[in-house]
């Protein structure tokens, strides 16, 4: 009765176990295959070189610009003020106490080292990641605002508002983001920066034109998502609110939008995940976001395989964090009961 039977095992849990094993086998095969191929082209993996592009120890040397004698060493906090008196000049250099390399009475030539110390610095990949994060967050926030208003205009009864929204949405959705980025930077940016220069004001950096391009692009898609969300709420909700004497904006704000919000969240998350990925296009207008930073490091380090994998994984971390956050929001805003 209780004897082991292969067919019974297969019928119950067997296929499931085999599938799981198959999954891992395939994963290992793919990774192994890639590794094998790189061996064939004699690629040398040097993962140990990667961390320096996140953090590295920077050596700073403090050098004297004049020649002369060290006349005094005055401690000030954890610094020491090294005073050097030359022929007809005297200069004071603050040097961190632990890195001091001279003592009183030493004779110093111009260019001599007074102190050497090392400091941890943020590497270019991490800076690139930060720029990507910053650009994405600002563009997402602006995109929400633009999309909300455009979406509300889209469902408005007022033809001026509605047609403006439709024009905006169709224009933006009908052309490639890359072209829009060029227009923002090379057309609008040139115009605006020239006007600023005429007024004697400083120029806006490419980053801001990039943010504008992404936000306006995302806004058009968000507008359609908002419109669909609003229209998915039963007409009776608006009528009930209006019949109680609430104004149109009150009904929207208290009744329609809160209910639409939950339905809007999943497509909105998808849109913003796209936005994070699309920010990789900003490299072409000299915004040093993650992709551009990676490209720069690749040209200097000659470790493209590791770096592009790392780059992809960093994007994955950003997008995954965002979808986790949205799932949390979805749970939080679930209608209780």
């Amino acid at each position: 009765m209780s004897s082991f039977s292969l067919t019974d095992y297969l019928r119950t849990r067997g296929w499931r176990h085999i599938s799981i094993i198959l999954f891992f086998v395939m994963m290992v095969a793919v990774i192994g295959g890639i590794y094998f191929a790189t061996q064939k082209v004699e690629y040398v993996w040097r993962w140990y070189r990667i961390p320096q592009y996140f953090f590295y120890k920077d050596t700073t040397e403090i050098r004297s610009e004049i020649g002369g004698e060290v006349v005094s060493l005055v401690p000030k906090g954890d610094q020491v003020e090294v005073a050097i008196r030359g022929v007809d000049v005297e200069e004071v250099y603050p040097v961190p106490a632990h890195s001091l390399k001279v003592s009183k009475g030493d004779y110093i030539y111009p260019g001599d080292i007074l102190g050497v110390y090392q400091k941890w610095k943020v590497g270019i990949l991490l800076i690139g990641l930060w720029i990507t994060l910053k650009v994405s967050i600002i563009a997402v926030l602006l995109g929400i605002v633009i999309g909300l208003f455009a979406g509300l205009a889209r469902v408005s009864k007022n033809p001026a508002l509605r047609w403006t929204a439709i024009t905006y949405i169709e224009l933006i959705r009908g052309s490639p983001l890359l072209v829009q980025i060029f227009i923002w930077y090379f057309v609008l940016g040139t115009m605006f920066n020239t006007l600023l220069a005429r007024q004697g004001m400083s120029q806006l950096s490419p980053l801001w034109y990039g943010v504008a391009a992404l936000a306006v692009f995302a806004g058009a898609y968000v507008a359609e998502i908002v419109r669909a969300g609003i229209q998915s709420i039963h007409r009776g909700q608006m009528e009930a609110a209006r019949s109680l004497g609430m104004t149109y904006p009150q009904s929207m704000g208290y009744i329609i939008l809160p209910q639409a919000f939950r339905r809007i969240l999943p497509p909105l998350a998808g849109q913003f995940i796209s936005l994070i990925k699309d920010s990789s296009l900003l490299g072409i207008i000299a915004v040093r976001e993650l992709t551009k930073a990676t490209r720069e490091v690749v040209t200097t380090s000659l470790q493209p395989f590791e770096l592009w994998f790392i780059c992809a994984i960093l994007y994955l971390i950003l997008t995954f964090t965002l979808s986790m956050f949205v799932q949390y929001l979805e749970r939080r805003t679930a209608i209780g009961g």
Partner: peptide, 29 residues
């Protein structure tokens, strides 16, 4: 809106605010 404040309306499909409790439905307006 002023006129509607003085007129209650009850619908065939109830149209209660789905995201609010009964209490919320009664107090909002």
């Amino acid at each position: 809106n002023k006129v509607r404040e003085e007129m209650g309306m009850v619908f065939q499909s109830f149209n209660l605010f789905a995201h609010k409790t009964v209490m919320g439905n009664l107090t909002l307006a």
